[in-house]
């Protein structure tokens, strides 16, 4: 018989970050040709964990793999996760094509959210490109349920074509409100489109805000966020009040796989939302 090891190991808590929790797909909406919004309800229990607008989950498609996907639902709807997924690879293809009743795994929520409290008492701008809207949708829900905490709320959303707009119906409702302004622009359109055409940064001169007292959240392709930030700076928005959501191909969500390194940051841990000031110089570098 072997004797006891010196100071036998102390058993750890059984909790592991490496176990996706099963959820059932309760609803699926086709947003565009390649993008769908899926709603997930817990298989066990009745509610999901809390999350902050801007955080993401690792969604697991059994037999396929995992992908980091922003949370796009309302923080106060505790019964479900809502995610909008665009087919852009092995895992997102599968996630975008799930059917109601399918079971997926969820790990999360992970990352840091938008600093909404900083915008309280100020003008709030959301400038969004493409699939940057889903991670900002929870912000809109929060803002609308506490509308009195903010001054002007202005949203500019740019997409590729009218067919690539997500949340179409909901956007119509938002556009109908008098307590926020929601502008939409597309890169190109056909004759059926009577909205704006161009790029989203063009909308900035037209947005109503007081530069010195404005907080801006940007989410979209890096080149779009760069251009937007510059345009906002021109209108007097303090660089320290511009926030961006960065994207890299996250594999773990918990700062241990290294894929989401961006300069000093591990985006899954320190981001994805970061002050623009802290990433500005890296966005200027090639292949960083």
């Amino acid at each position: 018989m072997p004797s006891e090891p010196f100071g036998a190991p102390v058993p750890q808590e059984s909790g592991t970050p490496w176990a996706p929790v099963p959820y059932r797909v309760s609803e699926r909406t086709q947003e565009t040709a390649d993008t769908a919004t899926i709603e997930l309800e817990p298989l066990e229990g009745t509610r999901r964990p809390d999350f902050l607008p801007g955080q993401f989950n690792m969604l697991y498609a059994p037999n396929i793999g995992e992908a980091a996907i922003s949370i796009a639902g309302s923080p106060s709807d505790l019964r479900r996760w809502v995610h909008t997924v665009r087919s852009a690879g092995k895992t997102t293809d599968a996630l975008a094509q799930v059917r109601v009743g399918d079971v997926l795994g969820v790990r999360g929520p992970y990352g840091k959210g938008w600093p909404l409290h900083e915008a309280e008492g100020k003008d709030l701008l959301l400038v969004v490109g493409g699939l940057g809207l889903p991670p900002l949708r929870p912000v809109l829900y929060e803002v609308l349920s506490h509308r009195d905490r903010f001054r002007r709320v202005e949203i500019a959303y740019g997409a590729r074509t009218p067919k690539d707009l997500v949340y179409y119906e909901e956007i119509q409702r938002w556009r109908g409100r008098d307590d926020l302004r929601f502008q939409v622009t597309v890169d190109r359109a056909g004759t059926e489109w009577y909205g704006d055409v161009g790029i989203v940064t063009q909308r900035i001169p037209d947005m109503r805000f007081e530069g010195s007292s404005t907080v801006a959240f940007l989410c979209g392709p890096e080149i779009m966020m760069k251009g937007t930030a510059r345009a906002l700076q021109e209108r007097g928005v303090l660089t320290s009040r511009i926030y961006v959501s960065m994207e890299r191909n996250m594999k773990c969500g918990i700062g241990q796989c290294g894929h989401c390194q961006f300069g000093p940051y591990l985006l899954c841990r320190d981001g994805p939302v970061l002050p623009y000031a802290s990433v500005e110089r890296f966005l200027a570098l090639r292949e960083f």
């Binding site: 056909g190 004759t191 009577y194 909205g195």
Partner: peptide, 23 residues
Amino acid sequence: GKIGLELVAPDRPRLSLLTVGPG
């Protein structure tokens, strides 16, 4: 108001590339 600047060619749909507004 708003003016859309569109490209036209006989063999393809009209394509709007820019809208121009007040100012």
